[in-house]
């Protein structure tokens, strides 16, 4: 399903402490200028502040999609996932776990905590970009998301 209004970009929140990865996603999204706004936070506290629009995040939009790395400082990504999925206000936002781990344990834990999808970061740039393209294609063009 196409964005009804091309002028309104999709808001993506990337919970990731590695700026390199954030930049890679940004570079990927450059191919479709104006369609996506990528916001990055690096730990559980920033995530909470962003979602609740506190402090310096007072003016941020509500994200349409969340990309979540599991390997975060302070509390790990699993706890962040649990927090989002247990909050009635945010639990409908699709959360894509995007991590370097391919361990069964992590995959199971993520789905148990209601992750919408689990993806292992491909080590190759082209594959990485292809995965990001696939994510936005699926979630913004194929899937129908809940209205705010």
């Amino acid at each position: 399903m196409k964005n009804d209004d091309p002028a309104v970009p999709h808001e993506i929140l990337f919970i990731e402490d590695n700026p390199g990865d954030v930049r890679l996603v940004q570079e990927t999204l450059k191919d479709q200028p104006g369609q996506f706004n990528l916001h990055a936070v690096s730990d559980v506290d920033e995530t909470r502040a962003f979602l609740k629009r506190q402090a310096r995040f007072a003016d941020v939009p509500r994200p349409d999609l969340i990309l979540l790395d599991l390997n975060l400082p302070k509390e790990n990504g699993r706890n962040v996932l649990a927090a989002i999925k247990s909050d009635p206000e945010f639990r409908r936002i699709p959360v894509i776990v995007l991590t370097s781990s391919d361990r069964d344990k992590d995959v199971l834990a993520a789905y148990d905590l209601h992750a919408n999808c689990y993806i292992t970061k491909p080590p190759d740039l082209d594959q990485f970009m292809a995965v990001i393209q696939a994510i936005i294609h699926f979630w913004f063009e194929v899937a129908k998301l809940p209205a705010h």
């Binding site: 590695n18 390199g20 890679l24 370097s100 970061k121 080590p123 190759d124 740039l125």
Partner: peptide
């Protein structure tokens, strides 16, 4: 080896981006 993968993925990705 697991932890080495992460920085290596960065190096690989950016050098590939550089090439691209």
């Amino acid at each position: 080896s697991h932890d080495l993968q992460e920085p290596l993925r960065m190096v690989t990705s950016y050098v590939q981006l550089l090439k691209k």
